[in-house]
Design a protein around this nucleic acid. Structure first.
Lengths: 126, 126, 126, 126
DNA sequence: GTGGTCTAGACCACA
DNA sequence: GTGGTCTAGACCACG
């Protein structure tokens, strides 16, 4: 369940995972993240690795750390919404650019997506 | 013009770039790629890096090396079409997964894409 | 209003703040400081933190604790004046050193300061 | 010569030191910094600590790192000049605020600085 | 208990 | 050779 793909830094994979949990609303503004030690045990990596992860998230702005108290999901919901929107646009843009780079027309892209979504309709988590 | 993003191996970035040129039809089946030396100069990287790139492309199957003659785009157009289709599905799948991971519904994904495409309608390279 | 910068110990930030109030004359010799409990509530920090702050100020000499009565601004105005002068020289010295470390000449330092002061002439609190 | 003050993280002290060398022009745009290993030996700290330092500098923008080649002073002189100017204003502003917080008038600040500079006239490095 | 820093030592991918 | 990542283990300041 908590395993990592090799070749991409663990601390970044973990950061991404947590970030998605935040953006998806599974971790809400103000929520306390597990302490560095605890998280390290949970995901079975070194404390230092978790440290880097939390610092990365801090840099991104989705997380704040209060000395001696712990690390918390930022209560600045504005930032979270901005980030959600920004990431959305970014992913769409990258996707389209990638497809165009391979020579697909906008029509093909749109159709391809629709077919894919119809195909997997029941799979999205409810 | 020929710059590389850091943090992702240069040789893979170059491989991807060439691969896209092939899939897009800018390099046609049977075309000769620049020699390792020449390519290294053109894109300003180490020859070792280009070597790895060509080996990578060979592994993928879009390129063939003929000893003493050089490196050529494969004339097996079947492979190219398969690959195009495979990459297309892959990119779509990754895109959708990424969006769902951030909590977007299929509706939002489809709408987001349509809006983006309408917005950039004239921008596709002619 | 009462927020703290991270990465610098809260108890020192608080000590500095109170010290400045004393040196500025907002808290006068003999004035009673709020009790540890009260101060802790006012600035929303742990009582331990306020304790350390008061101990720090005692060490500096701007504050005296009388058992059972509370903590008071020292009535030894001599000390306050000495401290004012000492801190002044210290800050100037640090400032100049920092500027020189970045390669600014004395001329640039003096000019920079004058321009800044002219620019903010009306802003000093009345 | 290369010792560190305690209580302030070594990696930040080192970053500051290098940054000042860059801003002062002792390390010029395009210059290669010592490799992580070499620097670690020179200043007698662990490689990891130097890593953090270089990363910090990267974040600030005064330094760029090219995979497999090393870490270099950015050739973007625009950024360096901006930073110099920004830091200058920042330091002046902090200085003035600190002095005003202690109750000194603009006159006192200016005079204090002039006296200090006259006093140390010969000390600035030529 | 919490985050932060540091060390020693190891391994990897890249140029 | 270069930077990057990771671990194990330690110590510290802060709340």
């Amino acid at each position: 369940m908590t395993e990592f793909h090799s070749s991409h830094p663990i601390y970044l994979q973990l950061a991404e995972r947590i970030n998605e949990q935040i953006l998806r609303g599974e971790r809400k503004p103000g929520d306390k993240l597990p302490s560095v030690r605890e998280m390290a045990i949970q995901v079975k990596v070194n404390q230092n690795t978790v440290q880097r992860t939390y610092r990365e998230l801090e840099g991104i702005g989705t997380v704040e750390t209060r000395r001696g108290q712990g690390t918390f999901v930022t209560e600045n919901t504005g930032i979270l919404n901005q980030m959600r929107e920004r990431l959305k646009q970014e992913k769409i843009s990258q996707f389209v650019q990638g497809m165009q780079a391979m020579g697909f027309s906008n029509q093909e892209i749109e159709n391809g997506l629709q077919i894919f979504l119809r195909h997997n309709e029941g799979d999205a988590k409810p």
